[in-house]
């Protein structure tokens, strides 16, 4: 177990270095909030440009399990976000990449990019936010987008505030 945790820390440090070297355009920041705990990261996720999420920034909580990268990290939204596959209260994300389709070749940074992609390609057939999914399923794109924009305006951090 000790050797594994050493390997895990090694990989996390590697990932951290890489995130410092190459900026992920989907993120405003990606780092452990506490330097002593490498298993807990935070990220600021940008809303996809040209989508109702544009301009918003959401804080995302990343908990890394002991058997990472064999098992996926646990990722939750801290900032409230309106999305069919994200629980509005707990911030839990329903994404197969974070469950069955996880691969050890994904890094935390690439996973965050995948979550950003999820924002613009929701899957209303397996919803965690039933109301948003119902709007999408009924074909009310305008209603769905205005709901999303409201939540962006009401809860998300604004990109211009950060810069």
């Amino acid at each position: 177990m000790a050797s594994r945790s050493v390997a895990l820390n090694k990989r996390l440090i590697q990932e951290l270095h890489k995130t410092r070297q190459e900026d992920n355009p989907a993120l405003t920041y990606l780092a452990p909030p506490d330097d002593s705990d490498l298993h807990h990261w935070r990220a600021g996720l940008r809303g996809t440009p040209d989508s109702p999420y544009e301009g918003g920034v959401w804080d995302v909580d990343i908990v890394i399990p002991d058997n990472y990268p064999l098992a996926p990290p646990t990722i939750k939204f801290i900032t409230r976000i309106c999305h069919p596959n994200i629980n509005i209260k707990t911030g839990e994300i329903c994404l197969d990449l974070l469950k069955s389709e996880w691969s050890a070749a994904y890094t935390i940074s690439s996973t965050m990019t995948a979550i950003q992609t999820l924002l613009t390609s929701p899957e209303p057939d397996s919803p965690l936010n039933v109301d948003a999914a119902a709007l999408l399923r009924a074909g009310d794109t305008m209603g769905y987008e205005s709901l999303v924009r409201y939540y962006v305006w009401r809860y998300a951090k604004k990109e211009e505030d950060i810069l």
Partner: peptide, 11 residues
């Protein structure tokens, strides 16, 4: 959905 509600993802 069953998986999603199951809580505690994958360990």
């Amino acid at each position: 959905v069953g998986r999603g509600r199951g809580g505690g993802f994958g360990l």
